[in-house]
């Protein structure tokens, strides 16, 4: 089936499944998961080192043909997010940046106002900005105006695996935004990824549900298939629902 690629900045992606590097029990699983899922973009975070326990270089586990999407997690203000983004680019991670500004420690919900400010600054500096936001249509329009490359609404709070709790709001973004809509956070199982894609989301970002599965490699593939199925269903245009039954076999009796 013919499908256009997902274009973000100057790069076009075949895969509509973005993944993350958090919470894997071993870094060796990351390249295996990437191979199994076909995911072409993966998130990483930046932190102060803990000199008492040297960490492995996570970047060495990510194949070169996979685009890095550094996030600004840990930032509590637009300024901090901007600082993280600049460091990530200087450190050789490319121009992509996922803006994540969080002040709410209970639900880890994004601060849309700080996120908009950071998006505006970084888009002007030539970053490909993917802001992680609460689904809010006027905000999405503002993100469009200030040069975001996509809008990434949450399905449910980070790491909760609760699926599309914000489904109706995401649908409004999909119907009314020109930018790609990438559902990020809260997708807990492949059927929920398919659900987002059937609605017309352009992509999904899945980390926890893959990384914390008993077999993250197989789960990565399961998500890839679900994303593809959901995308195909969207392109094929889903048949209408109806209240009353409509027979799919002839309504005449068996023998007369």
């Amino acid at each position: 089936m013919q499908d256009e690629k997902l274009t973000l900045g100057k790069i076009s992606f075949e895969s509509r499944l973005l993944t993350g590097t958090g919470k894997f029990s071993a870094n060796e699983l990351i390249p295996k998961m990437l191979a199994a899922s076909g995911s072409q973009m993966i998130t990483v975070a930046l932190r102060r080192i803990d000199s008492s326990s040297p960490v492995e270089n996570i970047l060495s586990y990510i194949p070169e043909n996979v685009t890095l999407l550094p996030n600004t997690s840990g930032a509590r203000t637009a300024d901090e997010a901007v600082r993280v983004a600049r460091i990530a680019r200087e450190a050789g991670c490319g121009d992509f940046i996922k803006i994540e500004v969080i002040t709410d420690v209970k639900y880890l919900m994004p601060d849309n106002i700080e996120t908009l400010k950071a998006t505006e600054i970084l888009a002007k500096e030539g970053f490909v900005v993917l802001p992680y936001v609460m689904p809010d249509l006027p905000l999405a329009k503002r993100l469009e105006d200030v040069g975001a490359a996509a809008v990434m609404p949450l399905g449910s709070p980070i790491g909760t695996n609760r699926g599309l709790e914000t489904k109706a709001m995401i649908a409004r973004l999909i119907e009314n935004c020109k930018l790609p809509i990438i559902v990020d956070a809260g997708i807990g199982r492949p059927s929920q990824a398919a659900e987002a894609m059937e609605m017309g989301a352009d992509a999904v970002l899945v980390n926890t549900a893959i990384a914390t599965a008993t077999d993250p490699v197989v789960m990565g593939e399961a998500f890839a298939l679900a994303v593809r199925a959901g995308r195909m269903a969207y392109l094929a245009k889903i048949a209408a629902e109806s209240h009353l039954s409509r027979a799919s076999s002839p309504l005449t009796g068996f023998l007369n």
């Binding site: 590097t21 990483v44 975070a45 102060r48 960490v55 996030n71 970002l205």
Partner: peptide, 10 residues
């Protein structure tokens, strides 16, 4: 001085 490194994150 800030000594930073990339770590796993979503």
């Amino acid at each position: 001085l800030e000594l930073l490194s990339f770590v796993g994150g979503g």
